[in-house]
Amino acid sequence: RNGDPRSVGIDGKGRVWFTLRIRDAGKQPGWCGGAGANKYGKYFPMKQSGKQVANYDPRTQKFENVDTCFSVDHNELSHDNFIYYGSNGAVGWVDMNTWDKTHDAEKSTGWCPAVIDTNGDGKITEGWTEPDQPVDPAKDHRVNFGCYSIAVNEKDGSIWCSGIGSDQKRLTRIEKGSNPPQTCRAEIFEPPPGQKLELVGTGGVQADTNGIVYDAWRVSGHFTAFDRSKCKSTKDPQANGQSCPEGWTIYRNTNEPTYSNSPYKSSEAYLLHMDRADTLGFGKDAPVYANTNTDSLELFQPSTRQFITLRVPYPLSYFARSGTPRVDDPNTGWKGKGFWSSYATYASWHIEGGKGSLPKVLKFQMRPNPLAK
């Protein structure tokens, strides 16, 4: 089936980028692998792509399709006009500047697998061991990783991924380097073992302006901050993700209900967003995540290390999946900015009002005091 649009991002020109199935998954362009492969297809061939990329320009009311060798879903736009996607053990991207100049999908796209410098020579060399093979100290090692949620650390340009599986507990860092894919390098980080409640089920990931990477854990209900600058070493010769236990700070909101006779919560964190512009008044770089099953968003205030619930009491059944901060007028204080979200349930007839009820867009604004005008 074609179509199935999803996962929207808006670029600096006001165009809407989204995922779209424009062809069969197995009908890959020739440059994705095999005899006609380009440098990316030769380095790490892509056999199928379940979804591709499209954009819509409201000014011209025209759609454009961008065929990709890699599958796409959630995205992150960078300040240098790349849009990144996580896909099947790799990170892919569309260079929007190149697309605008050429409208050539092959020239505008690329991807990196996750290969760790396990032999410690400071570079990645082809002929690495594969995920189902033991680590060889003389070679580098490729790892599989989940990338349902993706973030760009604007401080150093690195790309960060977290998965969606209930057993996943890995953050993956990809560095493109100056000449990808040959200069692509990966690091993986997992929380130190021995926690009172094991951290499992990574979820939404985001990086703040200081390079701290936050993750909202879907299964165990933790919330973590990972600061790579605290690492004594990032060398990982065993590819086990335990090179930097000192980088982790682990939180857990204990004010939420749990299932009977269980430490696990009835809520589930979804995608994570960074309020870099302080649209909600809790300070710059406040992470906000969608807290499904709770009629609310959850905000973490780094300065106080407190969780703050932003609940929607009416209409009932606000089911958050994502959100985004927006500043319309920086000169009008709280009135000129806000945090936007939506009723994102698949079953909109469960929204208060019943049959015929439609999803709704929400704008959260925070007054500095209750009587502020």
Rank of each mutant, 00 (worst) to 15 (best):
I150H: 08
R185H: 00
S342I: 10
N261W: 08
N81T: 02
G14D: 01
N331T: 14
G323I: 06
Q365Y: 08
T183N: 14
A138K: 13
P5K: 02
S158E: 12
D100S: 04
T68W: 00
P191C: 07
C69A: 01
D80Q: 03
K337V: 12
D236R: 10
F44K: 09
L199Y: 00
S322A: 07
N88R: 00
Q195P: 11
S267T: 13
L280K: 05
L299M: 13
N55M: 10
N291L: 13
Y270L: 15
Y251R: 13
G9W: 09
R1D: 11
E246R: 15
T224D: 07
G86I: 02
V361D: 12
G333F: 05
C32R: 09
L371C: 15
F364D: 07
V288F: 14
R185T: 12
G157Q: 01
R170C: 15
E130A: 14
E256K: 14
T118Q: 07
R6E: 03
H222V: 05
G86K: 02
T258E: 02
S178Y: 10
T209D: 13
H74Q: 10
K107R: 09
K176I: 09
T19S: 06
G354Q: 10
S78Y: 00
G281K: 07
G30P: 05
T68E: 05
P193T: 02
Y84A: 02
R170I: 15
Q365N: 09
P192H: 00
E352A: 05
I250Q: 03
P263A: 00
P193Q: 02
P237M: 11
P359Y: 06
K176P: 03
R59K: 04
G281L: 08
D67M: 02
R59W: 08
G30D: 05
D156R: 04
I164R: 10
P325W: 02
P5Y: 01
Q195Y: 09
D80V: 10
T68N: 04
N255S: 11
G127Q: 07
N88S: 03
V135N: 02
K51C: 10
S357Q: 14
G86A: 04
S260H: 06
Q168G: 07
A35Y: 12
W217L: 12
G353V: 08
R311K: 15
K284S: 11
Q206D: 14
D80G: 11
I10V: 09
A225R: 14
